[in-house]
């Protein structure tokens, strides 16, 4: 079997210790959360790794809490916990949709939400769902604590705006207004979940008086990072949710996408998927808002 190369390993007991360990470990020190990406990256030697800082012994980094005006999800919360959360299902169905198609059960039981965001895969499942849920991340670093919108964290494939000593501690997702709905749809090579997305889209809507007041659409595997589709969002905002308006937004999403061709799919197929999956995500979002799409 492929063996890991030797590395320094530590299990800090506090966030401060962890930040210090990362800062002293330098560029090749890595945070170990769920490990489902990091260990793979180490085995495939995608990233040089000199030190692994396992943050799972630090208390307080897990759990899903109702803060009233927001939901807090600890960075080390397992994907399975999100998948099974009634609270998240009620407030942010896209996040549950995304959690339930992320990899496979024995990986979801290890993978964490913080790790998924921190890995910054363009094909992230949770990324677009968090973006359309207006989630922000709380980050602890050498300069103290700060909060940033998840959509602002992504810089490039595998790259975030986090420094190498920053640690995401939790996610804060504002509680949605009445009329909110969201959904996530992805397509993997086997035609379903348990696969890396050839394309994935999340959508959220706020419907008031039969009109889409607010709309967020985020795409995965359709550009270098999980990102919002501004033209598509604009196309739907202020419109009644009909097959026609949803379809127009989906067309626009395909324009917003900047897919590349790779081993998983060609650029042109991805562009088609951007449209089809956006339409399906929008339909799911409208349905979960309690509204319906006029034929």
């Amino acid at each position: 079997m492929k063996r890991l190369r030797q590395f320094a390993y530590s299990e800090p007991a506090t966030l401060d210790e962890a930040v210090a360990a990362l800062a002293s470990g330098g560029e090749d020190a890595r945070v170990l959360a769920g490990g489902t990406d990091l260990i793979v990256d180490m085995k495939t030697e995608r990233l040089p790794t000199s030190a692994v800082v396992n943050i799972k012994k630090i208390p307080g980094l897990t759990g899903i809490d109702d803060l009233g005006e927001a939901t807090r999800i600890g960075a080390l919360t397992k994907v399975t916990a999100i998948e099974g959360s009634q609270l998240v299902q009620q407030r942010h169905p896209a996040l549950v949709d995304a959690a339930s198609v992320l990899a496979s059960p024995p990986v979801r039981a290890l993978a964490t939400i913080g790790g998924n965001v921190g890995r910054a895969s363009p094909a992230s499942d949770l990324g677009p769902a968090l973006i359309v849920s207006a989630a922000s991340a709380r980050i602890r670093g050498t300069m103290g604590e700060r909060e940033e919108l998840v959509e602002g964290l992504y810089v490039g494939p595998g790259q975030t705006s986090l420094t190498c000593s920053d640690i995401i501690t939790d996610f804060i997702i504002p509680s949605p207004p009445v009329g909110f709905g969201s959904g996530h749809v992805k397509l993997g090579k086997r035609g379903g979940g348990t696969d890396i997305a050839m394309a994935g889209t999340s959508a959220s809507v706020v419907i008031e008086d039969g009109v889409v007041r607010d709309c967020k659409i985020a795409l995965a595997s359709l550009g270098p990072i999980p990102f919002r589709a501004p033209t598509a969002e604009a196309a739907l905002s202020g419109q009644a949710p009909t097959e026609e308006t949803l379809g127009a937004a989906a067309e626009a999403a395909a324009e917003d996408a900047s897919p590349i061709g790779d081993v998983r799919a060609s650029a042109s197929y991805r562009a088609t998927l951007a449209r089809v999956l956006t339409l399906r995500a929008l339909r799911a979002a409208v349905a979960s808002s309690g509204g319906w799409v006029v034929a």
């Binding site: 090579k189 379903g192 696969d195 890396i196």
Partner: peptide, 26 residues
């Protein structure tokens, strides 16, 4: 599902991540 992407003789998807085999769900 199964499909090797080969570029200039090099298999680019030499991993079960991207060489997909049917599961019980399929």
């Amino acid at each position: 599902f199964e499909d090797f992407k080969i570029d200039n003789g090099r298999i680019e998807n030499a991993s079960l991540v991207d060489y997909k085999v049917a599961t019980i769900e399929d």
